[in-house]
Amino acid sequence: MFLAIRELAHAKIRYALIGLIIVLIASLIFIISGLAKGLSADNASAIQNMKADYILMDTDAELEMTKSFISRTDLDNVLQMDGIEQANSLSVRMMNASVNGSDQNEDVALFVTDGDSMLLPSVRDGSPITQEDEAIVDASLQREGIEIGDRLVFGEESELTVVGFTDSQRYSHTPVVFVDGGGRETINAIAISVDESRADEIRNAVGNSFDMVTKDEALKGIPSYSQEQASLNMMIVFLFVITAFVLAAFFYVITLQKRDQFGVLKALGAKTTYLAQNLVGQVVLISIMCIGIAMGLTLGIAELLPEEMPFLLTADEMVQTSILILIVSIIGAFLSLIQIVKIDPIEAIEGAGK
């Protein structure tokens, strides 16, 4: 590490430039990762945060919940199965609501379930549902000016009163409105909590009638969810590849420029492993410093983003992404390690003398 630190101190501008490139690429990776997570939550947080182990849907629905149709009798039969700890109905409707009968309209996802359902989220402000004409709504509607006591009017006959707000309940990029409607004869899905030791047994028992899927699998049925995430994840992968190529090219050129010096060091007794350790040390030091700067820059940018922009990046995710960037950076330096191994001290010294 002594040689690595001395060289970093000697060639400040050279390494500052490559550091700037790494900072920009790492920041872009963090930002796109945050947008990917934010869009995922904005599209499906109501399913991701659902207090259920599995979801049962009609096999013909192909995981698209709004196309699944299940009878109340089927729900009663599921409740009788051994290993089912709890089962609740769920109906999903994409609706447009008028606020207090005014010209203000809001697109919402109506989640209809049982009054004592495990699917009902905890209330942040207000009170839980106590009757069928009450609703708990996602807090994003507060930014639209909706308050507790306001009425959501659906058509001419249906009306709900907002009694509480909850966090992180979005579906298909719209706020979710939870309502008690457990008496419906037809539902879209059944959310179940099961004894995990009997999960396979239950799946086999319902296999002829339902698709028993995890919450992650159910996300694939949300329109555009998979395509949206695939596009953003592909961008992130390409950025990792670009990081590896940039570092590989930079350190390869630097290694070629220092070929004669490495040859002299080898002739003086320096081992190849020592030189390789110093190269890797340089990469690690530069990467750690640049990743730290990129993390701070990303957090600063996140604070400036508008509240309605879907951006979500937790500390754990930032650490995981940082480790990946560091690993990719080290991989990018492997090409230079090969050059160090191949350096012949005699040829390098003779080349330097010409």
Rank of each mutant, 00 (worst) to 15 (best):
R143M: 13
A205D: 12
F165C: 04
H173Q: 15
F154P: 01
I136E: 06
T161W: 02
I202L: 15
V153G: 00
I192F: 06
I192K: 04
S197K: 13
V137W: 08
N204I: 11
S158N: 15
V206E: 03
T186Q: 11
V176K: 05
E156P: 04
Q142N: 14
L160E: 00
E144R: 15
A189E: 06
T161R: 10
T214C: 04
E156T: 09
L141V: 10
V213T: 08
K215V: 12
E201K: 09
E159A: 07
D180C: 05
G155A: 03
E144Y: 11
T174I: 10
N188M: 01
P175K: 11
V137N: 13
G145I: 10
D138V: 06
V163Q: 06
V153A: 09
T174A: 11
T174V: 13
G182N: 10
E157C: 00
S140Y: 03
L160R: 00
S168E: 14
I136N: 04
F165A: 04
E134G: 02
D180F: 15
V206C: 01
E159G: 00
I192N: 02
H173S: 14
E201P: 01
I202F: 00
R184V: 06
I136F: 11
G183K: 10
E159D: 08
S193L: 12
A189K: 09
V137K: 09
N204S: 11
S172C: 14
S158C: 00
I187C: 04
G181P: 02
I148H: 08
D138E: 09
R170N: 15
P175R: 05
G145F: 02
A189C: 06
I187F: 02
A135V: 09
E147G: 05
